[in-house]
């Protein structure tokens, strides 16, 4: 059964242009619908400016959507009673990208972990606290409770951040680029920690990342995000091994790898980076090597294989203007 459901979620920002007459509407998140079943890790893959962080903030309840809904366990996050929303917020925890900014520099590790418990009026138990630290690999936990963030390495800080999210036993975790600021040698152990927590506690998670290899490694399903829209969605292996959308293909082609290490002749992805976005239709069409006339209309989603959806006219996506 799905635990999280996004229905046609939209967030538009109004940007005043210099003249103040014309207002630009930025569609940061533009009609996203997806469902995440219990115990699944779903990755949102997109580049900076794709709206993926805005999406995560809405799911975590930090930002109100322009329209659409975020439903967790049957409760609508923005259209329910106060008590229900309080409860919901307890059930959703968020892990941020920057382990240096996500912990209050003036709190000790103990204070950081106690905060969500106190704010959600949950009992603070020493045993729980130490157990949680042990689970995230900060052992012996007694050595860490009295430390301040500046006394920890980046990897340790990110473990504290995950402990803070885990301690209230949430039903759902949003992780916004949780490893992008960690060194490569620290990254792996952090991803393994996420996988082991999922295995043990059945955590459901939405992971937001720009790195499709990391998404492939940890997640069950992947949504490829481009300019506020999901352009491709499916099981992680399907999306990575049989990418359908031209953008997904370019993304995968661009991932550097050792296997090509010394092969002469560099790769030339056919996708230019520096072209302006079109005002209408498929947002990728100005960069797309396969763009055609039909692309002037917004493509709808087509199921090209079981549970593998693509929004592209190449696959018969019927135009919805």
């Amino acid at each position: 059964m799905e635990i999280l459901k996004l229905e046609n979620l939209e967030k538009h920002f109004e940007v005043h242009s210099r003249s103040r007459v014309r207002r630009n509407l930025i569609r940061a998140v533009d009609g996203v619908s997806l469902a995440i079943p219990e115990g699944e890790i779903h990755s949102i893959v997109g580049e900076s400016g794709s709206g993926k962080t805005t999406l995560g903030r809405m799911v975590a309840g930090l930002l109100e959507p322009t329209s659409g809904s975020v439903v967790l366990g049957g409760v609508d996050m923005f259209r329910s009673g106060r008590g229900e929303i309080r409860n919901l917020r307890k059930s959703i925890q968020i892990i941020f990208q920057d382990p240096y900014a996500s912990l209050n520099p003036r709190f000790t590790v103990r204070q950081i972990l106690e905060e969500p418990l106190r704010l959600n009026r949950l009992p603070v138990q020493e045993g729980d606290l130490l157990d949680t630290l042990r689970q995230v690999g900060l052992t012996p936990p007694e050595d860490f409770t009295g430390r301040y963030p500046h006394e920890l390495s980046g990897g340790q800080r990110q473990r504290v951040a995950i402990a803070r999210a885990m301690i209230v036993r949430p039903r759902f975790i949003v992780a916004d680029e949780p490893v992008s600021m960690l060194d490569a040698s620290m990254r792996g152990s952090f991803l393994q920690l996420i996988l082991s927590l999922r295995k043990r506690d059945g955590i459901t998670m939405m992971m937001i990342t720009h790195d499709i290899s990391i998404a492939h490694y940890v997640s069950d399903r992947i949504s490829i995000f481009y300019r506020g829209k999901v352009v491709e969605q499916g099981r992680a292996d399907d999306v990575v091994l049989n990418p359908a959308h031209p953008y997904t293909r370019a993304l995968i082609e661009s991932v550097p790898s050792f296997s090509r290490g010394d092969s002469e002749g560099s790769r030339h992805p056919e996708v230019p980076s520096d072209v302006p976005d079109p005002a209408t239709g498929c947002m990728f069409r100005n960069r797309c090597p396969k763009a055609m006339v039909a692309c002037e209309a917004v493509p709808g989603a087509t199921e090209i294989a079981p549970a593998h959806f693509v929004s592209c006219h190449l696959y018969g996506g019927t135009g919805v203007k």
Binding site: A60, L62, K90, I94, A101, S102, L103, R164
Partner: peptide
């Protein structure tokens, strides 16, 4: 983020 985290926790 640490402020947002507190806000997300009510």
């Amino acid at each position: 983020p640490f402020v947002e985290s507190a806000r997300a926790n009510n």
